[in-house]
């Protein structure tokens, strides 16, 4: 483990008019660490994710990221071009709906290759080779490389989105309900895949989910949100096995046993 965090979130608050999106959220994320943000719909978890990932300007608070040169930079004080470059190379963002993160009418190979071209790769053969390796890694048959994602199943699309995000070797990946909308067997496969990739690549990740089983499987640490506030925060198995707050106890006791 490194001695410096990768991301410092300090008192991030987002108001929508008079309504609270999220309030006064602070934490640090370390390299290789997976943080789950859980809570029911409307608790502010997606607002928080967007505010951290520069997709939504917070009302107040700062988000600092340690660049590859070791320097911390305030994301909202960077130029737009620099921020976009960061998002395309050092970060990934996996959307709940793969159609939001993929280009549905270009081939699977081009979806993966596009991010490589964004970082300056120009050799068609290399790009195609790397794309085809990544398809294999996310368990998509390489003979589908020229097909468009609109011809793929939901689970395949989600795996393709993951390949597209990871091909540039990012250090931080944001995931918004990555398994939402998939049926359970597809979910299990995707979770296992994500878990393996996160371990092998030493990624840091922030995963927003309402599914506590997903949080248990993927995350080291967990934050529970309610009405825009973080009400409980700790080691994932501690929060799930010994929940302290009334709302966390309600969430944990509401899990259906199979």
């Amino acid at each position: 483990m490194s001695d410096h965090p990768l991301l410092r979130v300090n008192a991030v608050t987002k108001f929508y008019g008079a309504r609270v999106g999220c309030r006064d959220v602070s934490f640090e994320l370390w390299p290789g660490e997976v943080l789950a943000v859980v809570g029911e719909s409307g608790s502010g978890k997606t607002t928080l994710l967007n505010a951290i990932s520069t997709r939504l300007l917070p009302t107040s608070g700062t988000v600092e990221y340690r660049m590859r040169d070791g320097q911390f930079r305030d994301l909202y004080r960077m130029g737009e071009a620099e921020r976009r470059f960061l998002m395309r190379t050092d970060w990934g963002f996996v959307h709940q709906n793969p159609a939001d993160g993929l280009r549905m009418t270009v081939s699977a190979g081009a979806n993966v290759g596009e991010r490589l071209m964004a970082i300056g790769d120009r050799h068609y053969g290399n790009i195609r080779d790397t794309a085809s390796q990544w398809l294999g890694r996310v368990e998509i048959d390489t003979d589908r490389i020229d097909d468009q994602p609109r011809d793929f199943s939901g689970g395949m699309r989600q795996r393709l989105q993951i390949a597209r995000n990871l091909v540039t070797g990012p250090r931080l990946v944001f995931m918004d309900e990555p398994t939402g909308g998939l049926d359970v067997s597809v979910q299990a496969r995707l979770l296992d895949l994500v878990r393996g990739l996160v371990n092998d690549l030493g990624l840091a990740a922030i995963v927003v989910t309402h599914d506590l089983a997903v949080a248990r499987l993927l995350s080291h640490r967990m934050m529970v949100m309610k009405d825009g506030n973080v009400i409980e925060h700790g080691l994932t198995d501690r929060v799930l096995d010994d929940p302290r707050e009334p709302y966390t106890q309600l969430l944990v006791s509401s899990i259906l046993q199979v």
């Binding site: 700790g234 080691l235 198995d237 501690r238 096995d241 010994d242 302290r244």
Partner: peptide, 9 residues
């Protein structure tokens, strides 16, 4: 045991 492992607070 669970407290010693950090699993219980």
């Amino acid at each position: 045991l669970k407290m010693l492992y950090g699993n219980y607070s």
